[in-house]
Amino acid sequence: MDNKNITISATPHIRSGESIQSIMRDVIIALLPATVMGIVYFGIPALTLIAISIATAVISEALYQKATKQKVTITDLSAVVTGLLLAMNLPASAPWWVPVVGSAFAIVVAKQLFGGLGQNFVNPALAGRAFLMASYPSIMADFGATVPADAVSTATPLALLKAGNTADLPSLTDALIGNIGGTLGETCAIALILGGIYLIWKQVISWRMPVTYIAVVFVLSALIGRNGVRMPVYELLIGGLMLGAFFMATDYATSPLTPCGQFIYAAGCGILTVLIRTFGGYPEGVSYSILIMNLCVPLIERYTKPTIFGALPKEKKEAKKA
């Protein structure tokens, strides 16, 4: 029997059901609890910023790809994730054009100019945030007008800790449920942890990076402390740590492929975060520490290649040394 419609292809002949789109959809699902909590705490302005940010990210990706005559890939949902993550890094008081500038920068400059999906060397959302922080520092640090109505203080816990003002700090419970000042997506630690657990359960991310990152921050905060105050649990729940550890540091394109490298990279993020928080000029160090570690990824990968099955004894030794 000869059949003209027969397919000839290389092995394997079956593929897993997972696709880029399904992964991105899972990330969006995982971000939903924190997004909803952000809207609950900060109201309609938060919702507007999120919508504008996502829309800008998707439109700028489509326009760039059209302009450069590439296939438009917005259905893979990666631009939606970038737009959403960027919005979560904004204070709710930011004017409407801030997410437009940030998202467009994230997509066009940080992602597309370097080759698009999977080719960017820094996390696009964090690059967008860093760009906004450098360009509009006062807008990006203005949390005063937008703390949740019944929050204890108008300053963020990070700023209070930086200033050594432990008396006005909100309670641990408030920090856990997000009744504190901060960007619109980072405050509710418990929602972010839930989302992170979902991603690990769905095997979208491995536990290695978030657990290492959080553990290192915990240990170092317990050892070093700020202004003589050691509050390691508190340090975990405030600022962008949970958002960063579960959703930013784990960005595929900008974190190491090798399991061993992931530990080193995440530990580096943790160390830098604590150093910036404790000794740096900024109250928060999550985004910059991740961006810096992003740049170290090629180097880390080079020295953390997995040992192959059946490696000769000599190679095993060398691999261990490296």
Binding site: T7, R15, I20, L257
Partner: peptide, 22 residues
């Protein structure tokens, strides 16, 4: 046969290769 797209560097091939290759 699903369409090939950009590698997103998820690292799953590294994590699952039974020979420990990349």
């Amino acid at each position: 046969i699903p369409e090939e797209s950009n590698c997103i560097r998820c690292g799953k091939c590294v994590e699952h290769c039974p020979m420990g290759l990349m």
